[in-house]
Design a protein around this nucleic acid. Structure first.
Lengths: 341, 341
DNA sequence: CTGTTAGCGCATTCAT
DNA sequence: ATGAATGCGCTAACAG
C-alpha cells in the first residue's frame, strides 16, 4: 500500500530510456525526438508523475518558499497583508511560510533563525512593536536571504522597506478635526521604539503650528497597544484640567479601547469627545460608536509591493553588477477615510 | 561576498577528517573519540554550521512541514486556530505552510495539489463552505500524506476529524432563549452542504419539541454567510406574520449583519429582538448591541487537537500494523457563553 | 538524438 | 575510532 511516488528513474526503467532522456523529454528539450517525447509524457501522465520538489530544492539550492514574519494574524491588518503576499507569491509559484512573533523579540529571532535554516529564499517582515535591534535580520544577508520590511519597518536607511506614509493621513486627520472645530486634540501614541510614533507627533505639531493652535504636551500620551495601557492613557487625558475634545489614536484597536473607556466615563462619543484613528478596520462598520475617521494604510498594497520588491531582488541577485546597491524605500500614501454614520 | 554556507565537507576539509567522521561527531555517535568530537563541534560552532535542511528533507523524504488549508485568515476564528497548530508544530520542530481557500473549491484543490508537490508531511484542513467532494484530500492517501480535518469537516466516517460538538451549545442556546421567555425562535442557518447546518436544526427541533413549543418551519432560513444573503434571510424572517422574537445565527459575523439589518428596521436589539450566535468573537466586547450569548467553539483547542492527531499519525505510520485503521473523530464540546452587558 | 557521469549535502553501511 | 562508498531524485555538462 506504500504507493511509492513515481520518479524519473521509474519512467526510464519502464521505457528503457535513460533518466536524462526522460528528464529532457519532460522539459521539452529541443533535441529530443517527438516520438520519445510523446511516449515519456504519456507514461508520466499515467503514473501521475510529479517532480519531487525536495530533490529540486536541494539541487537548485532554492526552496521556492518565502518566509513571512509578522506580529500576529489576528489583526485583520496583517491577514490582509498576507493576502497581498500570497497573491504575488502565487504568480511566481512560490509558497509562503508564516511565522508570528506575537510582538515578542525572542520569538521573532527564533523564527528568523528557523526560516534561515529552512532555507527560505527570502523574507517579508513586519517587526514586533519592541524590536530596536535588527541584527537577526541583517545577518541573513550573509546567507543571501534578502529581506523586505513592510509597515512596521526598521528606522535604518540600509534596508529594503515599504511603509505607509501617514504623514499625509495624519495631516488630513488633524485638519479634519480642526475643521470640525476642535482645538484641544489629544494623541494616544504608540511606543517610542516605533518609528511611526515620532513622525506622528512631528506632523501633529506642524499642523497645529500652522493653524496657530497652542501646543500642549500634556495632550500627548502613549500606549503599548494593550488595553490596560490605553485605559491609563485615557485616564491621563480625561483627568486634565482641560481635557481634549478629540483624540487621535495610533490604531483602531486602541481607538476601540479608548472609546470604551470614554463611554465608561459617561462621555458621549462624537459629541463630548471624538476619535480619529488609523487602519480602517472592517469591524468599524458594525460599531455603534465608531471613530469619526480612520487613516487607511492599505496593508494589502503594502505587502504586495514588498513582495514584488523581494522578487525583484531575487532576479537582481543573479546580476553580478552589485556595486552600488540601492535600498528600496517605498512609501504608500495613507488616506483619511471618513466614516459615514 | 557570496558567503557560502559551511557544509560537513568544508569542516572535514579544514580538520582533515572525513565527512562521515564529522557527521558522526556532530551527532554524538558513540564511537567517535572525545578529542575529535570536541574539535569538530568547536569548528562547527565557529563557522555557524547549520545542517542544510533541504538536503535533509531530500534524504529523509520528510519536509518537517505541515500544510494548513483553511477558508481564510481574516476570521479571528481561524487565526486562533493557526495558533493552536503553530504551538504543536513548534514543539515537534515542524514548520507550517498556510494556504487560504477563500471558500473557493478550485483554490482549495489547487492548494492541496501544491502542498502535495511541496511534499508536506501532513495536512490540517478546514474545508470551504461549499466543498462536498473530498477527492482532492482523499487522494493524498496514495502519497502517504495524512490529513486531519477540523471545525469544518467532511461528513464522512472514513476521515480523521476534530469538530465542535455544538449540539450541546445549541441546546443550551435554545434553552437559554426559552428561559428568557422566547417562544418564536428563528434560525439563520448556514448552507446545507455544511454538516453543522443539519445538526443545528435537529437539535433545535428536539429542544422545541421537548419544551412543547410548536415548530414553525418558516422560522428557519439560510444564508451563505454573505451579508447580502443574511439580509435576505432577515427580511424573510421579519416579514413573517408573526416574526421571531429571538434568532439563532450560524456565527457571529452573520449575527453582526443580522443585527445591523434589525436596527435598520427600527427594531430594538435585545428588546424587540434578541440574538444568540456561535464563535464568541473578541470584537463582541466592543459592540453596543451584541448578541446575548455565543456558543464558544474553541478554535485553538480544536486545531491543537487536530495537529496532535496528525503527529500521532506520523508515528503510527511507522508501525506496520495498519490492519484495522481507526479514524479519529473527536468532538469538542461547545459551550454557551453569556455576554454580560 | 540519446546515454553516461558527476554532484548537490547528508546519513549510513561496509570496510579497515 | 575513522574512512570510503553509496544513494536519495534531479539536472546538466560532457560524450558519443
Amino acid at each position: 500500500m506504500d504507493n511509492k511516488l513515481p520518479t524519473l528513474k521509474e519512467i526510464a526503467r519502464r521505457l528503457k530510456f535513460s533518466v536524462s532522456t526522460v528528464s529532457r523529454a519532460l522539459h521539452d528539450h529541443p533535441s529530443i525526438g517527438l516520438r520519445t517525447k510523446m511516449q515519456v509524457k504519456q507514461l508520466a501522465k499515467e503514473l501521475n508523475y510529479e517532480p519531487n520538489q525536495t530533490a529540486l530544492f536541494f539541487k537548485q539550492q532554492k526552496t521556492h518558499t518565502i518566509g513571512v514574519i509578522l506580529p500576529n494574524l489576528k489583526e485583520e491588518f496583517f491577514s490582509q497583508a498576507i493576502n497581498g503576499i500570497e497573491d504575488v507569491a502565487k504568480i511566481n509559484k512560490y509558497s509562503v511560510l508564516i511565522g508570528q512573533s506575537h510582538d515578542d523579540i525572542d520569538q521573532e529571532k527564533q523564527i528568523a533563525i528557523a526560516m534561515k535554516n529552512q532555507r527560505v529564499d527570502g523574507l517579508i517582515v513586519s517587526i514586533s512593536k519592541h524590536t530596536k535591534n535588527y541584527d537577526h535580520f541583517i545577518s541573513l544577508r550573509k546567507y543571501n536571504i534578502p529581506v523586505v520590511f513592510f509597515d512596521r519597518v526598521p528606522d535604518l536607511p540600509t534596508v529594503h522597506k515599504v511603509a505607509s506614509n501617514f504623514n499625509t493621513g495624519t495631516k488630513q486627520a488633524i485638519e479634519f478635526l480642526i475643521t470640525k472645530g476642535h482645538r484641544r486634540i489629544g494623541v494616544i501614541n504608540g511606543p517610542e521604539e516605533m518609528k511611526s510614533s515620532k513622525e506622528r507627533i512631528i506632523t501633529y505639531m506642524e499642523v497645529l503650528q500652522k493653524k496657530r493652535i497652542k501646543i500642549d504636551l500634556s495632550l500627548i500620551v502613549t500606549t503599548d497597544l494593550t488595553q490596560v495601557k490605553t485605559f491609563e492613557a485615557m485616564k491621563n487625558l480625561l483627568d486634565l484640567k482641560y481635557p481634549p475634545t478629540a483624540i487621535l489614536t495610533i490604531n483602531d484597536y486602541v481607538a476601540l479601547d479608548a472609546i470604551q473607556y470614554a463611554r465608561k466615563s459617561k462621555l458621549k462619543i462624537n459629541k463630548d469627545i471624538s476619535f480619529v484613528s488609523y487602519a480602517n478596520l472592517p469591524i468599524i462598520n458594525y460599531l455603534e460608536f465608531p471613530p469619526l475617521a480612520s487613516v487607511e494604510q492599505y496593508p494589502y498594497e503594502q505587502a504586495k509591493k514588498a513582495t514584488e520588491i523581494l522578487f525583484d531582488l531575487f532576479n537582481a541577485d543573479n546580476i553580478p553588477d552589485e556595486e552600488e546597491k540601492k535600498y528600496h524605500n517605498i512609501l504608500i500614501e495613507g488616506q483619511l477615510i471618513i466614516h459615514k454614520k
